[in-house]
C-alpha cells in the first residue's frame, strides 16, 4: 500500500520500477477496448521477458506482448480481438509452436480468481465448467506448479457442495485466487493520488486492480486531488490500491476508450495482416513500437487526421459512422 499524496511518474519509470523479468502481471480492458496499450508498448520497448500473464479476454494487449516475446506463461479465458482477429494471431502461433505455456479458464472463473485475490481469500466457487475439459485438462505441469511459490498446486478443484444441496447445488468448482506482482489499467480520469474514475463498462478492471501487489494506472486526464472527490460515487478505485499514476493521453490506442476515442479499424486491420507473417510482423514491431520513442510519438506518427476520425461523439461515446469495413 502506498499513501503518497503524489504518485505521478512517467511511463518509462513506472514500467521499469514495477514490471520485472519473470514477474506475474495482469492488464485491464477487454478485446479491443481500454487495454493499457501505451504500457504494453513500453514493456516491449524495455524488452522485459518471461512474464507470467493473467487475462480474461484481453485481445490486443495480450497478442502484442506475446508477439514481442515478453510472455512465457499465460492464464487466460479468451484470446481474440473481435472481428479483427477472432483468434489472436501471434497468440495462436505461439501456442501452436509451443513457445508459451497456457492454462485455460473461463471468463467468469478468471474474474472470480481476481476477486478472490482482491479479497485475500484462497479461492471462490462457481458452477461453471463442471463435466468439461476446463476441469479435466490442465496446461501447466505438476512440476511447474510445485516448483513455483507463486502458483497453487492445482488448476482448480471440484467438490461436493459442503452445504449439502443448498440452493439446488450438488457440486461446485473452486478456482484459486490470483495475486499479481503488478496490474496495469488504463482509465479515463485519475487524480495525482490515484483515485480512479472509469466511464462505461469496467470489465474486470476493479478486481484486477485490487488483486495486485502493485498497481499502475495510466489515464487520459489527470485531475487535482479535489476534483474526483466531488461526485465520488462515480469513482471505482480509491487511491489506497494505487502505486503509480501516469498521464498518457490516447493511452489505450489503438483500442477504444469510451467517450474519448474509438478503436482504430485501420490500425487493427494492418496489425492482423502483419501478424500473419513473421518478417512482416518484425517490421511492424520495429516501425510502430521500437520506432517510436514513446506513445505520444506513435500518436503523432498516426497523425491528426486518423485521430479525428476515431474521436468519440459526445452523445454516444463512440465515433459514429466510422468506416469499420
Amino acid at each position: 500500500m502506498n499513501l503518497k499524496q503524489d504518485k505521478t511518474m512517467d511511463l518509462k519509470t513506472a514500467i521499469s520500477t514495477y514490471v520485472k523479468h519473470g514477474c506475474h502481471l495482469s492488464i485491464g480492458g477487454f478485446t479491443i477496448n481500454r487495454n493499457p496499450m501505451a504500457a504494453v508498448y513500453e514493456i516491449i520497448r524495455q524488452k522485459i521477458r518471461n512474464i507470467h500473464l493473467y487475462a480474461h479476454s484481453n485481445g490486443q494487449g495480450v497478442d502484442e506482448l506475446i508477439g514481442a516475446g515478453c510472455i512465457s506463461d499465460l492464464e487466460i479465458a479468451y484470446a481474440g480481438s473481435g472481428k479483427f482477429a477472432p483468434t489472436c494471431i501471434r497468440f495462436r502461433k505461439a501456442v501452436e509452436e509451443n513457445l508459451i505455456r497456457v492454462e485455460d479458464y473461463t471468463n467468469y472463473q478468471m474474474t472470480l480468481r481476481f476477486l478472490a485475490g482482491s479479497m485475500g481469500i484462497p479461492f471462490l466457487p462457481t458452477r461453471s465448467s463442471l463435466g468439461t475439459d476446463i476441469v479435466n485438462k490442465w496446461g501447466f505441469s505438476d512440476k511447474m506448479r510445485k516448483s513455483s511459490d507463486k502458483l497453487p498446486d492445482q488448476k482448480l478443484i471440484v467438490m461436493d457442495n459442503p452445504f449439502q444441496g443448498w440452493l439446488d447445488t450438488q457440486k461446485v468448482v473452486l478456482v484459486p485466487a490470483i495475486r499479481t506482482d503488478v496490474t496495469i489499467i488504463h482509465v479515463q480520469r485519475a487524480d495525482i493520488r490515484g483515485n480512479c474514475r472509469i466511464q462505461g463498462l469496467t470489465f474486470a478492471d476493479v478486481e484486477q486492480a485490487k488483486s495486485a501487489e502493485h498497481l499502475i494506472v495510466t489515464c487520459e486526464e489527470i485531475c487535482d486531488n479535489d476534483m474526483l472527490k466531488t461526485d465520488s460515487d462515480q469513482n471505482q478505485i480509491p487511491f489506497i490500491h494505487v502505486d503509480a499514476v501516469v498521464h498518457v493521453p490516447k493511452g489505450a490506442y489503438p483500442t477504444a476508450c469510451y467517450h474519448y476515442y474509438d478503436y482504430d479499424p485501420k490500425y487493427l486491420k494492418n496489425y492482423a495482416q502483419k501478424a500473419r507473417e513473421d518478417a512482416a510482423y518484425l517490421e511492424y514491431i520495429d516501425t510502430f513500437i521500437h520506432g517510436c520513442r514513446d506513445h505520444a510519438d506513435l500518436i503523432s506518427m498516426i497523425g491528426d487526421e486518423r485521430m479525428a476520425m476515431i474521436a468519440a461523439d459526445p452523445e454516444t461515446g463512440y465515433a459514429k459512422n466510422l468506416d469499420r469495413r
Binding site: 479465458a77 479468451y78 483468434t87 479458464y105 473461463t106 471468463n107 467468469y108 461453471s128 465448467s129
Partner: peptide, 8 residues
C-alpha cells in the same frame, strides 16, 4: 480463442 464466457 478459448472459452471466453462460452463455457459459463
Amino acid at each position: 480463442s478459448g472459452s471466453g464466457g462460452g463455457c459459463d
